[in-house]
Each structure stands twice: as C-alpha cells, then as structure tokens.
Amino acid sequence: MVDAAFGPQPGKRPDVSGPHQSYLNMVRQKRIYSAIFLVLLIVLLSGGFHLAEGRNAGGFLNGLPMLGAFPSEILSEGWADRANVPGLALHFIPSLIETLNIAAVSTLVGGLCAAFLSLMSTRGLAPLPRLTPVFRRTMDALRALPDVVIALVLIYVLGGGPIPAVIAISIHTSGALGKLFSEAAENADLKPVEGLTSTGATWGQRIWLGVIPQVAPNWASYLLMRFEINVRASAILGFVGQGGIGADLKIAMQWGTGKYDQVVAIFIILFLTIVVIDRTSDWLRTRLTKGARHG
C-alpha cells in the first residue's frame, strides 16, 4: 500500500509528518468503501431475488421442500427398474455419439474460422491491417449470439437434424475462440516472422512456419476447453431444438412417470461423459501448456 499512499499526484499526497495517522485514515476510508459496496451488493441481491420471486410461478420457500421430490421420484423409479438401466444406457449410446460428433465437428469448424479471424485481427500479423477492427467487431458479434437462438432459426430453414446445431455452435465458437486465439497470437514472438520475411517467405509461409508453431500449444489447449463447453451446449441444443441425447432426454421427461428409467440412464451416461471429457482435457491441457513452458 506504500506506493499507493505516495502516489504521483501532488494533491493526493498524504500528510508525511504524521504517517501513522494518515495510514489509519486511508485504511478507514478503504473499509468504508468496501462496507458500502458490500451493503449495496446485499441490498441489490435481496431486492433482485424478491423481484424475481414475484415473477416466478412458484415461490422459493414453497418450492424448497419440493426440491428433492423430483430427483427422488426419478431415482426411486430408476432404482425400481434398475435392471433396465444398463440396457437403456447402451440404447442411448448412438445419440450420445451424435451429440459428441456435433460438439467435435463444430469445435473443428469453429476453430478453423477462429484461426482465420484471429490472424486477420492480430496487430503485426494481419495481411490487411486496415481491416483488423472490422474482423474484431465481427468476432464480437459472432460471440454474442447464443447458439440456441441461431439453431432455432436454422431449424426453420434447414429442417431438423444435427446440421443446424453444428452451424449454430460453430458460429458461436468461431467468435469465442477467435478472441482467445488472437490474444495468444498477439503474445507470439515476431522475430521468427521477421526472419522468414527476410528470406522472402509469403504471408502463408510466415504464419505456417513462424506463428503456428509458437501458438499451437495454447491454441490446442483453448480448443480442448471449447470442446468441453460445446459438449454441454450440444446437449442443451438437443433439448431445446432437435437431435442428440438432449432430444431423447426431453422426450423421456415429457413422458413423465414410467419413463424415468430412461431419464436415469441418460443422466448417468451424460454425467460420466462430461466428467471423462473434463478430466482428459484437463490432463491434456496441463501437459500442453507445461510442455510449452519448457520450450
């Protein structure tokens, strides 16, 4: 806090003759600010929850005892029909694979678009420096669009199936990854690029040989992280729109009592898949970034 107390502005300089007193004053002022912030946050949170509860169909306290009812209903029926669950889990594997395929393809396609967009919008690398703001704003807009919304509009045009989901998630992915990619590319060392330029390399060669090897570990790590996110997104998309394990879950839940063994089977395989993917990608990402750090 010493450097903050003796700031560059002469007006804010504290009284040096009594450092103890001025330090205490500063601490007190800081605490008052924190207290005001905390009180404001609590007021906003409680007020907000009150407002949201008023707009809700059921109240919080009325619903609280019911919180366990639905899971226990599902679990008890799942337990009663536990003999069916492994078979049903196997039955839903194809739709799980479809969900994973949607996530993987859109991560790859979105990643390719993101690589292009990020190289176009990184200072020092962009072949058309004047257009970098345009590409940046494009990425912002692509990132802002929720994938479900794009998917629902596309379903109207393209009909059902996985393609609208792939396009929707790819669009969002290219914006989100593009930002991360260009941050990584901005931190890349430009010396190899200069060296390549001096040999007369084209833009493509400079990027492929000078930039990509530097950013590859980071980019791969971001891709893996995005794949995790996209698996979840594609499950939700299935639930709201069509296709994959999400759609099966929706049908099973709409059916209600009698199909809860299916719900349990889907929950189990979805949960296991997400945990396995999270773990694997966590492990791979640590390896990638650690490896990059050692050269």
Partner: peptide, 19 residues
C-alpha cells in the same frame, strides 16, 4: 451435472420464472 439438468430439476420445484 450440467446447467441443463440443474435447470430441469429446479423448474420442477420452483415452477417456471426468472428466479
């Protein structure tokens, strides 16, 4: 367990709405 599954469980207890 994912946002989707939490949402489905919570909707049954608290009904639809912003809360």
């Amino acid at each position: 367990l994912d946002a989707l599954i939490w949402t489905l469980i919570l909707v049954r207890a608290f009904g639809p709405g912003p809360m």
